[in-house]
Amino acid sequence: MIVGERKPLEEIRAMLDPYRKILILGCGECVSVCMAGGEKEVGILASQLRMLYKRQGREVEIGEVTLIRQCDREYIEPHLDKIYQADVVLSMACGVGVQFVGEVAGEEVIVLPALNTKFYGVNLEAGMWAERCAGCGDCVLDKTAGICPIARCAKRLLNGPCGGSQGGRCEINPEVECAWQLIHERLKARGQLELLEEIVPAKNWKPSLSGGPRKVIREDLRL
């Protein structure tokens, strides 16, 4: 899932300052699952903001809507009325939702982000999420025992652990596991260590963001 984290209240407050009628727009997909921008988080933020404005003696109207998802036009369109009625939309989706609600609603509608979009990750344990994929556009997991060195090595190395790997930990932080240690262990367990003898040549970063904004087109699905 795409993992997000709510921005500090002070930052949200400052960006909402000019507006009197706010629609907080949650998203029912990834950010619901990672407890950052689903229906409940919309409720909490709305309640917090209502109390804040009441304290400040400001009259601000706050609406709450949570869509099935913000990355599909068909789920945004039924809510356009409410979106148009607001001065501003505070989207609690990932950066994708923030942009797409704006795209669908049109340039008159101001959509602001309530979250910082962090990464593609997993729910490691309750209350903890961790990065697993960097969306590089050219998956190498078949060569790396299913553990991604692009997303999980601080240097994105492709030819094994650097000299900073110690006791299974990364040099940048003892909390961080060395991805290449994990790859090594798994290949060893599988009796496939010889895979690490091969030199992986310089990666083609064209399919990644370095090649410019990306698009996927499936002609068979187009109308």
Binding site: I44, Q48, M51, L52, R55
Partner: peptide
């Protein structure tokens, strides 16, 4: 924490 943030 959420209440402290808004001065309650």
């Amino acid at each position: 924490k959420l209440l402290d943030e808004i001065g309650i």
